[in-house]
């Protein structure tokens, strides 16, 4: 294994090098790009017809978990696509929670009572936290549905309420495609709206839009030259940029982060062990994380 920095994209631009401080976070793209909806801001263009990254075999997920455990991983994340499309999702949750805390990023549309009860049981039996990150794009159908699809707001709230009734307090994850949620005032208002919707201990995470994938058409692409250059990172930034301590595994290989899996040249290797090296941040999306101080972590 070489220790030279691996560029995160095939761009000819030379970006700054970010050191790797160890595998704190493992992202598992358990359902790849396969999703039951097709959000207009999705940065990896997930949808029912996109199997660019297919659903991962159960054994592949278990193998990645075991490798990560051996490397002293701190947190595991399941994402997709929609993770609850995985036919053995509860088995994967159970296997993970034996050894580490887990966050699952979901649109909540498939969370029926039986699934919520199963998740709650697994959470109760584990020493570690289980977080459900429920994606929603507003506090009304008028805000959310144009992004996530017709009638999805009502169904997302139904799924989130089911989680809540089973004792799992979801973290609502909001991509700030609506300008009012970019500032503190709007974010405080969002929390208040969730209380009014019946979530009396609301938890929220806001995510900036990444102008790649389907978001390129909805909100516009990154302008030319919107990339970091050597010297742009501040001292110690590897502590805060998640890609300084995370890797993402899909059915197709290992990537620096969950944002870039559909980008040319982002695939680093087949095995996690071969990716524990510095990376060169030469993709425009890297600028979003740097400028916003953003991390995908819960």
């Amino acid at each position: 294994m070489s220790n030279s920095a691996i560029p995160v994209s095939s761009s000819a631009h030379r970006g700054p090098t970010l050191g790797f401080r160890g595998l704190d976070v493992l992202w598992l793209q358990v359902t790849g790009t396969v999703c039951n909806i097709a959000c207009t801001h999705c940065f990896i263009t997930c949808g029912p017809k996109n199997d660019s990254h297919p659903i991962m075999e159960t054994q592949s997920v278990l193998d990645a978990l075991e490798q990560a455990r051996g490397l002293g991983v701190k947190e595991i994340y399941f994402t997709g696509g929609e993770p609850f499309l995985h036919p053995e999702i509860l088995k994967l949750v159970e296997a993970t929670l034996v050894h580490a805390p887990l966050s699952i990023l979901t649109n909540a549309l498939l969370l029926d009572d039986e699934t919520c009860a199963g998740l709650a049981r697994l959470e109760r039996n584990s020493r570690y936290s289980l977080d459900l990150r429920v994606s929603v794009d507003g506090t009304t159908a008028e805000e959310n549905d144009p992004i996530r699809g017709r009638h999805t707001f009502r169904r997302i709230m139904e799924g989130a309420h089911r989680l809540y009734r089973h004792g799992l307090n979801p973290v609502f994850t909001v991509t700030t495609v609506h300008a009012q949620y970019e500032g503190n005032e709007g974010r405080v208002q969002f929390l208040e709206s969730l209380r009014e919707l019946g979530f009396d201990r609301p938890r929220v995470k806001f995510i900036p839009p990444f102008h790649i994938g389907r978001e390129e058409e909805r909100g516009g692409a990154y302008p030319p030259g919107f990339q970091l250059s050597p010297g742009d990172l501040f001292e110690g930034e590897e502590q805060y940029l998640q890609c300084g301590s995370c890797r993402t595994v899909t059915a197709k290989g290992v990537y620096p982060c969950p944002i870039l899996i559909e980008e040319d040249g982002a695939r680093m290797a087949s095995e996690i062990h071969d990716t524990l090296v510095p990376i060169e941040l030469n993709h425009p999306a890297c600028t979003t994380c740097h400028a916003e101080g953003f991390s995908c972590r819960t």
Binding site: R21, G22, D24, R69, G70, L71, G72, V73, K74, E75, H99, A100, P101, R127, Y128, S129, Q239
Partner: peptide, 24 residues
């Protein structure tokens, strides 16, 4: 030991991570 404002909570700190910190 690696970051002054890192939160190490009981429910998000696995044994394997503790072993790693002790070793490092």
């Amino acid at each position: 030991p690696r970051q002054v404002n890192e939160f190490l909570w009981e429910s998000t700190t696995p044994d394997s991570f503790i072993e790693r910190l002790l070793g490092e």
